[in-house]
Computed example of a mutant assay.
Amino acid sequence: MNVGQPQDLYSAQTGKWASLTVPIHITSDGTHTVSYTVTGKNAASTSYIVGIDYLTLTQTNN
């Protein structure tokens, strides 16, 4: 299942980070996989690279 819209997180500065919130609702028990797909690049960028430093998962009671 794809969740969210494409995001342009390009920065000319190396080491700059951005925060992105994507709501994912898990409705069943068991093991689940979250993946991130690079679908393109900003015209100012010279390559394709993405780094994920951490994920924060929050339990809700909806």
Rank of each mutant, 00 (worst) to 15 (best):
I26E: 08
G51L: 01
D29N: 13
G30C: 11
S47C: 14
Q5L: 03
D8F: 02
T56D: 12
L9C: 00
I52H: 08
S45L: 06
Q5H: 03
Q59N: 09
S47F: 10
T14V: 14
V34P: 07
Q7F: 09
L20W: 15
A18N: 14
A43F: 05
T56V: 01
V38M: 12
H25L: 15
P23D: 03
K16L: 09
T14I: 14
G4W: 03
T39Y: 02
M1G: 11
T27A: 09
T60M: 05
Y48G: 04
K41E: 01
T31L: 15
N61L: 12
Q5S: 06
K16G: 03
D53W: 00
Y10C: 04
Y10I: 00
T60A: 07
K16F: 07
H25S: 13
N42M: 01
N62D: 12
S11K: 11
A12H: 11
N42R: 04
G4M: 04
H25R: 06
I24N: 10
T46V: 12
S11F: 02
Q7Y: 12
P6H: 06
T46Q: 02
I49G: 08
T27S: 14
L57S: 06
H25M: 00
A12F: 11
S47V: 12
G30V: 10
P23V: 07
G40V: 05
S47M: 09
S11H: 14
T21V: 05
G40T: 08
N2D: 05
T21F: 01
V38T: 10
S45N: 11
D8T: 04
I52K: 14
N2M: 09
A44I: 02
Y54V: 04
S19R: 02
S35F: 06
W17F: 12
W17A: 05
Y48V: 11
N62C: 00
V50C: 04
T56E: 02
S47G: 15
L20V: 15
T46W: 01
V3K: 10
L9G: 02
S45K: 01
T27E: 15
I26S: 00
K16A: 15
A12M: 04
N61V: 09
K16M: 12
A44M: 01
D53C: 11
P6N: 03
T14F: 05
P23S: 08
S28K: 14
S45A: 15
T56M: 01
A12Y: 06
Q5R: 03
T37N: 05
T21E: 13
D29F: 07
I24S: 06
A44R: 08
I49Y: 15
V22L: 13
Y36Q: 04
T46Y: 00
T27Q: 06
D8I: 03
S45W: 01
L20Q: 14
T27G: 09
G4F: 05
N62K: 07
A43L: 03
D53V: 00
L20C: 05
I26P: 10
V38L: 10
Y54A: 11
Q59W: 06
N42A: 08
D29G: 11
T60E: 11
L55K: 10
I26D: 01
N62H: 12
I24T: 03
G15T: 07
T21R: 13
I26K: 13
